[in-house]
């Protein structure tokens, strides 16, 4: 279970998170929606310790996540799919996927790591022939898939997806959404996804949280998304110009 209590974060004069409170239960798929630049990515980065909040507490199973006693063990519980894939372009695809398995605490023999990488690539629909290509040789959709394979390679308990469908055509976006949902269910992992793609929300989420103006405006099951009674959610879901969210940002 991940718990955020009154989390604040500023960059210079810009107060991005103004007291975020959120609970993600073990095994559930939480989707955080909100406009561009509302601090959704910052929120995920705070949980992972990539960004340090100025105020507030973040707990993982009741343990302090901001200053974990063993950071490597803490991070080993997470997998993350970055927005642009964030694949290491100096390494071939299979070494990207097996990155964690080639070094550090989870190190395995090279052949075994390669075999696992090829398995994971197959899970996201890529053939063994992609294993020796370099990220620059892949299309955007394939890079997303490789990123996904890397996020699940070490079988993490918690997986973060940062805008998994941005920049993909609707058909490919649908494929990635189904893959994410399938993998999360199959692994029994806790998932937190950031997106502003409503199709993605409906395909992936158990519960949805809306982040706006630095706070969580609404949390509820995905079934209530269309009749949330919350003006922020209503405006966002229907893409209306009029409402409490200023259209000109």
């Amino acid at each position: 279970m991940i718990e955020l209590i009154d989390v604040h974060k500023s960059f210079g004069k810009k107060h991005v998170l103004k007291g975020v409170n959120l609970r993600v239960e073990k095994g559930e798929s939480m989707v955080i929606i909100g406009g561009s630049g509302t601090g959704k990515s910052v929120l995920l980065k705070c949980i992972l310790g990539l960004v340090r909040p100025e105020k507030g507490r973040i707990l993982l199973d009741g343990q302090d996540a901001i200053r974990p006693s063993d950071r490597d063990a803490f991070l080993a519980r997470f997998g993350m799919l970055f927005q642009g894939g964030a694949l290491f372009d100096s390494l071939p695809v299979w070494q990207n996927v097996a990155f964690r398995l080639l070094r550090g605490a989870l190190k395995r023999p090279r052949e075994e790591a390669r075999r696992i990488a090829i398995d994971k690539l197959a899970r996201v629909g890529l053939g063994a022939d992609t294993a020796d290509l370099y990220p620059a040789e892949l299309s955007g959709g394939m890079q997303k898939r490789v990123g996904l394979a890397r996020a699940i390679a070490a079988e993490p308990e918690i997986i973060f997806f940062d805008e998994p469908t941005t920049g993909l055509d609707p058909i490919l976006a649908g494929v990635i959404n189904r893959l994410i949902r399938g993998i999360v269910e199959e692994m029994g992992a806790t998932a937190v996804t950031i997106t502003h793609d409503m199709t993605s929300v409906r395909a992936i989420a158990d519960r949805v949280a809306m982040l706006h103006d630095g706070v969580i405006q609404w949390v509820g099951p995905v079934s209530q998304l269309d009749n949330s009674g919350n003006p922020y959610v209503d405006q966002f879901v229907h893409g209306r110009e009029e409402g409490p969210i200023e259209a000109l940002r």
């Binding site: 992972l48 990539l50 991070l75 997998g79 993350m80 970055f82 964030a86 964690r100």
Partner: peptide, 15 residues
């Protein structure tokens, strides 16, 4: 690597 979040990715991969 920094601009494309590869440095963040390294950290999340315990490196």
């Amino acid at each position: 690597m920094k601009v494309t979040e590869q440095i963040d990715a390294l950290v999340t991969l315990s490196t």
